[in-house]
Design a protein around this nucleic acid. Structure first.
Lengths: 190, 190
DNA sequence: TTAATTCTGGAACAAACAGTCAAGAAAGGA
DNA sequence: TCCTTTCTTGACTGTTTGTTCCAGAATTAA
């Protein structure tokens, strides 16, 4: 067995992530991977198993990182609504790079239970943090109460996906900012 | 040369669409196609050229049909806002089947100019019809004026994509309906 | 009917694919 | 130094891919 060291493993995984998020699973060949990761073919198989296992790991890593980034923004402000706004702003600012989460849902839908599991876990963590934030924003009178917390969170997540698809379709930064602003408007009390 | 007749051609194209929207381009093999289309391998190549040409044609056909369906709903009601609402309702109702437009943007982004062209053409037609509808809704006081017509249309299109991604991710009908409702809320005047 | 056309099925092709094998270079510890 | 572990390299295997070729069945036109 020839596993690569823990230190480089994470770096290699990051590089694999970059390829997968741009080309998807089926659009990525093992040759693209070993070239991008700058490791030998054998190291890839010894360290990660096979292509699918590597993909699943990359999605998991991406989902974890992305979820944490969302939560960081949500909790980074005094007022909860400003946290929500900051989360959307970050999504807009980084929308030029494809989202592996959206990509993998698009590519596989519900057809791979082990993938779905990864998505659900990340979704659960994000939801947990967001629920608190939304409740606070509602208490502060910044988010309307007519929609349930869960409905609001669903809407935020769907809006994020919408922004990312728009970006992948070629929308400019200003258009994306406008999308973010309008999404927040949907939550405002009237 | 052995082309299949015009009549069956459209039917075959529809069947190909069904495969592509579920599995994407890379996830679809020619064998899956000939089986689904129930035509010989040779007929496929003679009639459509190659796999990519068939895919592009399927996307074009899908985009045309989908755009027309949107426009039909937009224009089907007396009040413009009801047309917009009907458009969203239809999206929600049919969200269980994957969207080839969203899929193809996700899979290829901006990397295939001939595909981008197809998307832009459909986008242009939809925008043209929607602009009129949004303006009427604004005149009727049903849609806020603080956002430009184009911003509103961008938002509607992004919301549709968001709803479809949510559905592909496993969201239930009620959740999708709630997403549609919240999207409309973003447009309401205050 | 006969003849031309249209379509099918199977076989074949080269290229690309995921994954394996084995030999050796590099690095580390004794 | 020698030995072991860790990693890279390139060649290899068997499968699947997209595509083409060809012989014949089915359909259509005369």
């Amino acid at each position: 067995m020839a596993r690569i060291k823990e230190f480089d493993r994470d770096k290699a995984l990051d590089l694999a992530m970059g390829v997968f998020r741009e080309h998807g699973f089926d659009g990525t060949s093992t040759e693209m991977l070993v070239k991008a990761m700058k490791i030998g073919r054998q190291s890839l198989y010894d360290t990660f198993g096979d292509k699918w296992a590597l993909y699943r790991l990359a999605v998991e890593r991406y989902a974890t990182a992305e979820t944490e980034a969302h939560i960081r923004e949500l909790r980074g402000s005094e007022r909860a609504i400003e946290g929500i706004s900051a989360m959307m702003d970050r999504v807009v600012a980084e929308a030029d790079r494809a989202c592996l989460g959206v990509n993998s849902i698009c590519e596989f839908g519900q057809s791979r239970p082990d993938l779905t599991e990864v998505h659900l876990a990340a979704d659960h963590r994000l939801r947990h943090a967001a629920r608190e934030c939304v409740r606070q924003a509602q208490d502060a009178g910044d988010v309307d109460r007519s929609a349930s917390e869960d409905a609001v969170i669903d809407f935020l997540i769907a809006s994020i996906a919408g922004i990312r698809i728009a970006a992948r379709g070629g929308a400019g930064q200003e258009a994306l900012q406008s999308l973010g602003r309008l999404a927040l408007r949907a939550l405002m009390p009237r």
